[in-house]
Structures are given as C-alpha cells and as structure tokens.
C-alpha cells in the first residue's frame, strides 16, 4: 500500500517496561474503511500496541523506538493537549469489560455527553439531540431510559453499545476495539461485531480489531496480523490466513481454535504446547522456537527477519527463519 492512503501507521514500534522488551519492531497500517485484525495470545502485546498508539501506556512503560502517525502526523512524543484531541476524537477506542470501563457513579447520558462537549463543543439541547442520534446509531432504542441510567442498570451488551456510542461521539476516523466481545456471551458478541461492521461501512471507519480469538477476527477483517511475544509474526489477507498460514504459530493457533467460520477443523482441536515467554525473557532468537515443532538450533540464536512474501499483489509477510536464506 502506498503511504499516501494510510490513515494510521505504526512503524517499528518498540516498548520497554522496566527494561524488559514488551514490543519489538511492531509495524502496521490501516486505510480508511479497512478492518485490520490483530490476534495473539493474552500478553503478546496487542493491547500494549493500542495503548501506545494513544499515548496511554501504563506507568513505567517507555517507547524505545518507532513512530505512530495519524494522517502523516506523528503522535509519539506529541503534546498532551494534541493527544487529548486525538483520543476520542480522530481515534476512538473501546475496551474489554464495558461494565468496568464506564464510571459507575455517572449517568450514561453525561458520560457520552462529555465526549460531545470536549470534542465537538456540544452542550444543552444540541448535545441532547446528538446523544439520541448516537444511541439510535448503536442500536440502543430506549434512549430516555438509557441516558438516565447508571452503568449497572444496563446489560453487558447495552454497556458495550454505550461505550461504542461514546467512542463515536468525537466523530473518529479510526476505531480501536480491544477485545470488545471477550466479556460478552456469544450471541451478544456477534451482535456487537455486526454493529462494528456496519459502522465501519456506514462511516468509512478504519477498524483495528484486537482479539485473542481468531474466529472473532477472521470473518470480520480484511487483513490479519498475528503477534507473538511482542513481535508481529505473520500478516496476511483474512481470507487466506486460514488456508495458507505460513508461520508455525499461526498454524498452531488455527488448529487450537474451534469453529472458525468456513473452516471445518481437519482434526480434533490441538493445544499449543508450552506457554508464552515472560516479557523480556527471550528476545534472542525466535520467541516461538521453544514451542515450535519445526524449530532448528538456529531458531534459538537468530532473530528472524520480516520476510515479505509475494502473493498476487497482496501484502503478506512472515517472521520465520524458514523463509530466509540458508534454512
């Protein structure tokens, strides 16, 4: 893709927490109207990536390298005022556990209204009208009740819809959804994903969908990027990743996932042996080597480079020594 139509671009992002590397050379880019899926086990750095984009890394975490640009404008190191305009403005974000992400002692209407006020200066009647429009857009029909409700008076699905309305209030061009359905039951989860899909089409939003669940990502995204231990290990168009996974980790992840749309499991579900390395422990060599069935001695000493794969004009890439010279 040309850099011209990139809306949000992350390049070579590295993050340390207390000296331990948690993100290493993460690069991704999203175009308007595109849905990019970011997948990986818990703790692989997906959420850290989204927080770094918004400049909301936890205390003690430091960006060591890379850049984050929104419409060509650098966000890393930008002033707090500029970041406040971007957060909830150009970039909206929703999280896991909507119930915990809403202020328990403030009415929903005021919480969404806050966003309308800080990003669009809407107050009073104008704000009220816009609130009703937003609620209708996210499928919350009983506006009267919802606006006056406290978070605990809404169901999980309604809470997430309210969070989405809040994220939309600043008229974002990018929406980051970090595990938006993990805390919800299956039926509600698929409704929320449908809603995100619709909003993307109607508003031309660029969607960064983060999940540990390939099944959530697969059916909803144009492209998928797989992360492992703070590094991207594979990128591919969504329709190809299941049939043509190149990285052993992606393949293992697919074998371990039940019910991926359109892909019947070839065999019984297979667990991935071992576990994700602790942050900062293995950054020499391929982090997946200890769990990889194809690993050779070289895998634990050499960090694999990102290998671009030619694939009929689609951008594909993989970080595995198999695809490098001298394998």
């Amino acid at each position: 893709m040309s850099t011209r139509d990139e809306l949000l671009a992350v390049k070579g992002l590295g993050v340390n927490i207390a000296g331990a590397t948690v993100l290493d050379g993460v690069s991704l880019a999203i175009r308007p109207g595109e849905a990019l899926g970011l997948v990986g086990e818990s703790g692989c750095g997906k959420s850290m990536t989204s927080l770094a984009i918004l400049g909301l890394l936890p205390r003690g975490a430091k960006v060591t390298s890379g850049s984050v640009t929104l419409r060509g404008e650098e966000l890393l190191g930008a002033g707090e005022d500029a970041l406040c305009r971007v957060r909830g403005g150009a970039i909206g974000m929703i999280f896991q556990e909507p119930g915990a992400c809403l202020d328990p002692v403030m009415r929903i209407g005021r919480q969404i209204g806050e966003s309308l006020e800080i990003h669009r200066g809407l107050k009073g009647a104008a704000q009220d009208a816009e609130l009703r429009k937003l609620l209708a857009e996210v499928g919350l029909t009983d506006a009267e009740r919802v606006l006056r409700a406290y978070p605990h008076e809404l169901s999980g699905g309604m809470q997430q819809r309210a969070m989405i309305a809040m994220a939309l209030a600043g008229e974002p061009v990018v929406l980051i959804a970090d595990e938006p359905t993990t805390a919800l039951d299956a039926r509600i989860a698929s409704q929320i994903l449908d809603l995100l899909d619709r909003l993307r089409r109607e508003r031309g939003l660029a969607l960064l969908l983060i999940s540990h669940d390939l099944a959530v990502i697969g059916g909803r995204c144009d492209r998928v990027m797989v992360m492992y231990a703070g590094r991207l290990v594979e990128a591919a168009p969504a329709e190809r990743i299941f049939s043509e996974a190149r990285h052993p980790y992606t393949a293992a992840l697919i074998e371990a996932s039940p019910g991926i749309a359109g892909v019947a499991p070839k065999s019984a579900l297979r667990d991935i042996p071992g576990q994700l390395p602790a942050p900062g422990s293995v950054m020499e060599g391929c982090a997946f080597a200890p769990r990889c069935s194809l690993a050779r001695p070289a895998c634990s000493t050499r960090v694999p480079r990102w290998s671009a794969l030619a694939d009929r004009g689609n951008e594909r890439g993989v970080r595995c020594l198999q695809y490098e010279e001298g394998w």
């Binding site: 406040c84 971007v86 957060r87 974000m93 999280f95 992400c101 809403l102 966003s115 800080i118």
Partner: peptide
C-alpha cells in the same frame, strides 16, 4: 483508562 481514551 477509558476516560483518558475518550480525550479527557
């Protein structure tokens, strides 16, 4: 975190 993410 959600409050910061919405731009407050």
């Amino acid at each position: 975190r959600a409050s910061l993410a919405k731009g407050l």
